[in-house]
Design a protein around this nucleic acid. Sequence first.
DNA 1: GGGAATTAAAAGTACTACTTTTACGTCACA
DNA 2: TGTGACGTAAAAGTAGTACTTTTAATTCCC
Lengths: 233, 233
Amino acid sequence: MTTPAQGLHSHVLATLGLAITAGEYPPGTVLRTDELAQRFDVSRTVVREVVRVLESMHLVESRRRVGVTVLPTASWNVYDPQVIRWRLAGADRPRQLRSLTVLRSAVEPVAAGLAALHATPEQCRELTEQALGMVATSRGRRLEEYLVHDIAFHRVVLNASGNEMFARLGDVVAEVLTGRTHHHVMFEDPDPAAVTLHVQVAEAVRERNAARAEELTRQIAVGALQELDVLAP
Amino acid sequence: MTTPAQGLHSHVLATLGLAITAGEYPPGTVLRTDELAQRFDVSRTVVREVVRVLESMHLVESRRRVGVTVLPTASWNVYDPQVIRWRLAGADRPRQLRSLTVLRSAVEPVAAGLAALHATPEQCRELTEQALGMVATSRGRRLEEYLVHDIAFHRVVLNASGNEMFARLGDVVAEVLTGRTHHHVMFEDPDPAAVTLHVQVAEAVRERNAARAEELTRQIAVGALQELDVLAP
DNA sequence: GGGAATTAAAAGTACTACTTTTACGTCACA
DNA sequence: TGTGACGTAAAAGTAGTACTTTTAATTCCC
């Protein structure tokens, strides 16, 4: 039904997590562990372990004599990559993509500025390579190939920033870019202006020009935000 | 020893989580569940649930026939509030504070800009109130009171931004500000310039001047970063 | 010396019995 | 009629045991 899953735990976790983040159980809904055990045809042990994980994500709260209560969205660990993936797979995907894109627009310019200061020669090389890859695949409906380079590019920038918190947003950016590409009409090639900006960012980083790297990345971010507005006003 | 803990699970989780994030078990260390069960004098059931949670935070990885392996820092869910709290309580607290402050410097200006666009009248009022509270407590060694207003101020800005991802950083900011205050020499009152900037941000938001709110918050961030450099060069 | 078969160690799963907490209903008393 | 103490039962929490499954490591054969 959902994911094949290797291991009962993963299967139950994926199913329940997806259902909760999709809003199938409104906040306040109470589930009982042995009811769940029966429903998924697994032992209470497995269910308990799943509940503990969901509890650590603040999706649910388990209380004695009451049961497992679904918590309101406001308390969810929305930075948990697993939660992000579930939500992107669910109904409020557009809302989620918007939130994440705004986050990107705040973080990536600063990260690029830091990258210009801290990037190793190897990272500079990698950055240029990915930018050129984007140029090469920017025409002729090669969106999938373009996406790979785009993700790699942003990942390198975030890693090169030298900030751990930024680096860990690589997966989030990957999800957003993937979602964007696959949600798009997929007919048109990427905006040539954006492609050029990426090449220029690589240049700026190579030249250790932090202010320019930051400003150029800010322009990329503005483009991404405008794109969202065009799609969902 | 560590936390009193109501519930065996919480106790074991807190102890193990703290130990791992503190680097007491270098990456690659393998633990065995029944060894842990023995060490903490709890059943394997409890240990397994704890391991599952640590696994969901990507602090450890559990493999059959091998055991529970401690993962390298790079794979940790560093945005998990629990992980943040553990790390701030541990040895690399300074490094952690720096990472988080850089993150703040990227996010908060953008959040302030959005707050200027989206803040409700109630939020504007609250913002002004907290800013005035900061002014009132900015002199005469009233650092603890000042801190309360400071935290509240930034929380309102993040919430008013209307972006879920920003809003959830309220706790992180609170931790950083608290850590900063309690780590400081505690002798001197807050920088008057910073206090003024907060008042001006509240003004800018009230006047719906997004660009100004953003720029002023950027100045606050710059101040926070410089402060870090002064303390730990 | 290399590859296939064997082994055993550890996690994964199930089940059952028991303990602890606590929401809720009951009943006595004012 | 309202209020508070009390008892009950429901559900999670914990323990222990028995069994299954995966898989690293060793052995053994060619």
